[in-house]
Nucleic acid binder design. Structure first.
Lengths: 193, 193
DNA sequence: CAATGTGTCATACAATCGTATGACACATTT
DNA sequence: AAATGTGTCATACGATTGTATGACACATTG
């Protein structure tokens, strides 16, 4: 990524605006106001509006990855999957910001070729993470019998995105956690507690 | 709902614009252009922009319900669930339009109190439909053992929304169908073919 | 027939938009 | 020291926005 400090601040400001006021209220001027900069400065870093939008999406992916890599190592496949995926659910303010941005981009990418690639990479990243977790579970013999790892990956990813989508329009944290547990439990056997 | 003919045409035009150019390109003028009407006419039916947005969302829900009620009656619980939920996946142009609108509103509702209620009703409607399908499956003894009907409803709804979200950014119909089958199969036993 | 209501349209206004451009300060490179 | 590059800002342009308002045609109601 290799972004400067100001670029990061601008992207964070963009994320805040999307999460607070919606995807369609983003403009070079509104982001500049939020970041406390002149419009020209924002424009210098991201010449067009699309550049700004893409930057916001890439920044949220970075933030999520950063949070995931901070997780402590755990042996139990169920628990580590649970922890990893909870990272993506809107369970606090920061994750809520990222969740809203993610859903907004999922909608926007379907009609904007310029956003499509950045979004596709996000989906791919999620699938690879889940795939990796399931492979680990398989290695230690914790996957449920008779399921396709391929299909389980795709569906768990879909369910996580669905939970995110429901989560940003509700504040029932327990429903999110229960839904995630149920989804993981359909694929991975819980370890001995 | 009880809407006039012109109002319906305006809402359909709004849906087309959202599906083609994105949620944030909707304006009273752009919708009027799409519908072949004067801006003032659109404004007469939907005085503010938010009224227009809400109308588009309610109209897609109507279209989906209309399509569901057109489905032929089937005995097998698995098959009827499959047919019912396929109705919501972006598998052709019309369903794709509705899927994009749905995801766009899921994002928008999280930051716009005025859209929140309409969106919440949509989620509730989906859950009730699924709940009804699962209850039928339970009655005829096709649900898998040991699962909570409540939890299965919530998770199947989440997975469907997740598949929709992935589907609008891909044109792999088979992946959608396989994903849906897998998700239903985790909850409902297929009938004898 | 008169009055009222309803749907359609055209126009007007201030605000905001994306984008282009040039000025200025500072750092880096030559 | 001179030249070049980079980050910040202010300003300007035409286009588009949401919304308000009034005119006109037509149907409905009194």
């Amino acid at each position: 990524m290799q972004r400067g400090l100001t670029s990061k601040a601008i992207a964070d400001a963009a994320i805040r605006i999307i999460a607070r006021n919606g995807f369609d209220t983003i403009s070079i001027r509104s982001v500049a106001r939020e970041a406390g900069l002149a419009s020209g400065t924002v424009q210098h870093h991201f010449p067009t509006r699309v550049d700004l939008l893409v930057a916001a999406l890439e920044r949220t992916a970075d933030r999520q990855l950063e949070r995931i890599s901070d997780l402590p190592a755990i042996r139990d496949a169920y628990r580590i999957t649970q922890r990893g995926l909870q990272t993506l659910l809107p369970l606090d303010d920061q994750r809520r910001e990222e969740a809203i941005v993610w859903i907004a981009y999922s909608a926007a990418a379907s009609t904007r070729p310029s956003l499509r690639q950045a979004h596709a990479e996000g989906v791919d990243l999620l699938r690879r993470q889940i795939r990796h977790l399931l492979e680990y579970a398989h290695e230690v013999g914790q996957t449920r019998a008779g399921i396709s790892l391929e299909q389980a990956t795709i569906n768990l990813a879909a369910t996580v995105d669905g939970l995110i989508l429901h989560g940003i329009n509700s504040d029932d944290d327990k429903a999110l956690l229960d839904g995630l547990d149920f989804a993981i439990g359909q694929v991975i056997e819980p370890g001995i507690t």
